[in-house]
C-alpha cells in the first residue's frame, strides 16, 4: 500500500466524519436545544417535535449514524484492501 493511497483513504474517512457529525449536531443541538421552541409548535401524535427530538429522536439518529459509519468504512476498507 502506497503512502498516496493511504492519504486518499484518510481524506475520504474525514469526509464521512464531517457529514455524519453535522447530522449528529443537527438532531441534538439544533433540533433538541437551539430551535426547540420553534419545533414544539409542530405536533405529531401526542409529541411536540422539539421535545421528541430531545428525548427520543436524537438517540435513534445517533444509533443509525454509527451503523451507517460502520457500513461506509467497511466498504472503504475493502476498496483500499485495508481490512485487517
Amino acid at each position: 500500500m502506497s503512502a498516496a493511497s493511504h492519504k486518499k483513504y484518510w481524506k475520504q474517512n474525514l469526509k464521512y466524519l464531517i457529514v455524519l457529525l453535522v447530522i449528529w449536531f443537527l438532531v441534538s443541538y439544533v433540533f433538541g436545544i437551539l430551535f426547540v421552541e420553534q419545533l414544539n409548535t409542530i405536533k405529531f401524535g401526542g409529541f411536540k417535535l422539539g421535545f421528541w427530538f430531545a428525548q427520543q429522536g436524537s438517540i435513534y439518529v445517533f444509533v443509525i449514524l454509527i451503523f451507517v459509519y460502520i457500513r461506509l468504512m467497511n466498504r472503504l476498507d475493502k476498496k483500499y484492501r485495508l481490512e485487517d
Partner: peptide
C-alpha cells in the same frame, strides 16, 4: 438523555 448517548457517536 442526549448527553449520555451522543458521546458514543
Amino acid at each position: 438523555l442526549m448527553g449520555w448517548t451522543g458521546g458514543y457517536v
